[in-house]
């Protein structure tokens, strides 16, 4: 996990902890999970872009 991601997770955890309603807490924590999923997908897509761009048979 990058420093930025860790920092963002802390922000979300902190906000979630402050919510009195269980369902509000659930929303922010689920958003944290979704952002982690976005990061994974961005890494994977970025990797695929790099891989396809550097394909020697396309040169």
């Amino acid at each position: 996990m990058t420093e930025n991601a860790a920092w963002l997770n802390e922000q979300i955890d902190h906000l979630a902890q402050q919510q009195a309603k269980f369902t509000d807490r659930a929303f922010w924590l689920a958003l944290k999970d979704l952002i982690a999923e976005q990061d994974r997908r961005a890494d994977q897509l970025g990797g695929e872009v790099d891989g396809r761009t550097w394909s020697p048979d396309q040169w």
Binding site: F22, A26, L29, A30
Partner: peptide
Amino acid sequence: LQLVVRYQ
């Protein structure tokens, strides 16, 4: 907590 949002 995860179930709340998955259900919604």
